[in-house]
Computed example of a mutant assay.
Amino acid sequence: MPSYYRDRSAPVPNRPRLVGVVALIEHDGCVLVDRRSDDGAWAFVGGRVEEDESVLGALHRFFARDDLAALDLWPAATPIRDAYLAFDGTPLIT
């Protein structure tokens, strides 16, 4: 099977990519968590990145959804990119 890793001429995938993003926000030893509206569990701010948006755009959307836009965290934000591997060791996303 050919490798299309970072190949812009690769064919379009036949299934959607499932990419998620989470914001881990720490201040004075405390971590910001949010109570989920669907099941009441505690979670970090984040969720699924839509196919047509960037990771940063998704974070902006989640902050607006959770009424956290007034926190003005963007100047201090440090994006961390990570690579996830398939079971065979090949990179899925970076």
Rank of each mutant, 00 (worst) to 15 (best):
M1Q: 13
M1W: 08
P2K: 10
P2A: 07
P2H: 08
S3W: 01
S3N: 07
S3P: 01
S3F: 02
Y4N: 11
Y5S: 09
Y5L: 09
Y5M: 07
Y5F: 13
R6M: 14
R8T: 13
S9V: 00
A10G: 11
A10Q: 06
P11S: 05
P11F: 01
P11E: 03
P11L: 02
V12Q: 03
P13Q: 01
P13L: 04
P13R: 07
N14T: 08
R15E: 06
P16G: 05
P16F: 00
R17K: 08
R17D: 07
R17N: 10
R17W: 01
L18I: 10
V19L: 11
V19R: 14
G20T: 15
G20K: 03
G20L: 03
G20C: 03
V21P: 00
V21F: 02
V22P: 03
A23M: 10
A23T: 08
L24V: 14
I25Q: 02
D28H: 13
G29D: 04
G29M: 08
V31Q: 14
V31M: 15
L32F: 06
L32P: 01
V33K: 15
D34A: 11
D34F: 13
D34R: 12
D34N: 12
R35H: 02
R35E: 14
S37Q: 14
S37H: 13
S37I: 12
D38F: 11
D39Y: 03
G40L: 05
G40H: 06
A41E: 12
A41R: 15
W42Y: 11
A43T: 14
A43E: 14
F44M: 13
V45Y: 02
V45W: 04
G46D: 10
G47M: 04
G47L: 01
G47A: 02
R48N: 00
V49T: 00
E50K: 09
E50W: 05
D52W: 00
D52N: 10
E53L: 01
E53F: 01
E53N: 00
S54V: 07
S54L: 04
S54F: 05
V55Q: 08
V55H: 07
L56F: 07
G57D: 00
G57I: 04
L59Q: 03
H60T: 07
R61W: 04
F62I: 02
F62R: 12
F63W: 06
A64H: 12
A64F: 03
A64V: 12
A64M: 09
R65F: 12
R65C: 07
D66C: 11
D66Q: 14
D66T: 05
D66A: 09
D66N: 15
L68S: 08
L68E: 06
L68G: 10
A69V: 11
A70T: 08
L71H: 05
D72K: 13
D72Y: 05
D72W: 01
L73P: 07
L73D: 04
W74G: 05
P75Q: 01
P75Y: 01
P75M: 04
A76R: 09
A77T: 12
A77V: 12
T78D: 11
P79D: 04
I80C: 06
I80T: 07
I80Q: 08
R81G: 13
R81W: 11
R81T: 09
D82R: 13
Y84E: 14
Y84S: 15
L85N: 03
A86C: 07
F87H: 14
D88K: 00
D88L: 02
G89K: 06
T90C: 10
P91K: 07
P91T: 03
P91A: 10
L92G: 00
T94L: 09
T94I: 05
T94D: 14
T94K: 06
